[in-house]
């Protein structure tokens, strides 16, 4: 829920500046400001955001250098429908605040003012700083749709759904793995769930646990390969992906990974071949054709991409992501066939 987190980072800031209790007369303005922030935090969790905003404003009158309090004031005003949101956020920005959460808040403030283009920029900045911030993906999707960018909206929404699902998977797998710490498969699944959420270090820890118990689990090698890719070590990644294929020959994912690696390396023919290999081993899965289509778009093979997309649609005709990609490819094809523009 929205109000669980608003003052979360304030708590962190407060820990650093918490001091002992003194009489009201002897306590510094900063201490009294801190107390007001704590009170605002408590009030905010009950939903009384106007009161929280009031307390934060009082706190800032005592200690105007508290960057987090300025952001929270903007956030509480936004939630309360009060004026002065941008004023508070601008103060926070002027003091150097540039976090994902800050940009998310400002994006929502622009949305409330129906300034979708500005909101889009803010959500994009939030995601640059925190790519797994699912709320930003959701809001970005809404904004993109209103701006008429159906494909971008679908892509954002798919990312939101993926992270949302990954969050649930992570919780489930963590519970299961902690209940059965000797189960290597569960450890590998937990590693995968962490990686899906972008928690690379934790994923590495869990994959190490899995390997310590068993070294022939395809999922563990899949995770290890993806981590190696993220860390810029394609040779190690390739070793793991090949092991996945040898252990689980119908798993398309290593082929997609290898295709993407080849694409990055500029080996277009290999990229194409590996993408086809993925559909060869998992021809019933529309998601594989979808992934193949994306690679073919990157290769500028639009006719083939369209065919892959249609293959995905045959297997799942209602998948919004695929429908939008299909429309997007058509758009690209139309643009590619347009005559070059005239100079005015």
């Amino acid at each position: 829920m929205r109000l669980i987190q608003p003052l979360f980072f304030l708590t962190i800031l407060l820990v650093a500046c918490s001091g002992g209790s003194d009489t009201e007369e002897t306590r510094s303005p900063q201490d009294r400001a801190r107390d007001l922030i704590i009170e605002a935090q408590e009030v905010a969790t009950t939903g009384n955001t106007p009161k929280a905003a009031e307390l934060l404003a009082r706190s800032l009158a005592l200690d105007p250098d508290h960057v987090g309090a300025w952001h929270s004031l903007g956030e509480m005003r936004l939630l309360s429908g009060l004026d002065g949101v941008f004023e508070a956020l601008d103060r926070a920005e002027a003091m150097g605040l540039d976090s994902a959460r800050f940009h998310q808040t400002r994006g929502e403030a622009y949305e409330a003012e129906e300034q979708d283009s500005q909101a889009k920029l803010e959500f994009a900045m939030a995601l640059e700083r925190e790519p797994f911030r699912k709320e930003a993906w959701f809001r970005l999707a809404q904004v993109e749709r209103r701006l008429g960018n159906e494909f971008a909206a679908a892509e954002s929404l798919a990312e939101f759904a993926r992270i949302d699902q990954a969050e649930r998977s992570l919780m489930t797998s963590l519970q299961a793995a902690e209940a059965q710490p000797e189960d290597a498969m569960l450890a590998a699944a937990t590693a995968s769930a962490h990686l899906e959420m972008g928690y690379v270090e934790e994923a590495q820890e869990w994959v190490d646990r899995a390997f310590a118990m068993r070294n022939n689990i395809p999922e563990a090698h899949m995770v290890a390969g993806r981590i190696a890719r993220l860390q810029g070590d394609p040779d190690t990644a390739l070793v793991h992906f090949e092991l996945v294929t040898s252990l689980s020959q119908y798993d398309p994912r290593p082929w997609i990974e290898r295709s993407e690696m080849a694409l990055s390396a500029g080996d277009h023919q290999a990229a194409r071949n590996y993408a086809h290999q993925a559909t060869d081993v998992a021809g019933a899965d529309p998601r594989v054709f979808l992934a193949q289509a994306r690679i073919l778009i990157a290769l500028d093979a639009l006719d083939d991409a369209l065919a892959s997309c249609e293959a995905a649609l045959m297997r799942d005709p209602k998948r919004e992501e695929t429908l939008q990609l299909h429309a997007h490819i058509w758009d690209l094809m139309v643009k590619a066939n347009e005559p070059a523009g005239k100079d005015d």
Binding site: L3, T46, G47, N48, T49, P50, L78, L79, S80, G81, L82, E111, A112, E114, Q142, R145, R146
Partner: peptide
């Protein structure tokens, strides 16, 4: 509902967020 046909969540702007939270 906007004139563009899209629906926007106006709860915060309407000040109903805090009034209905509990």
């Amino acid at each position: 509902r906007g004139e563009d046909g899209f629906w926007r969540d106006r709860t915060t702007r309407s000040r109903l967020h805090a009034l209905t939270w509990k």
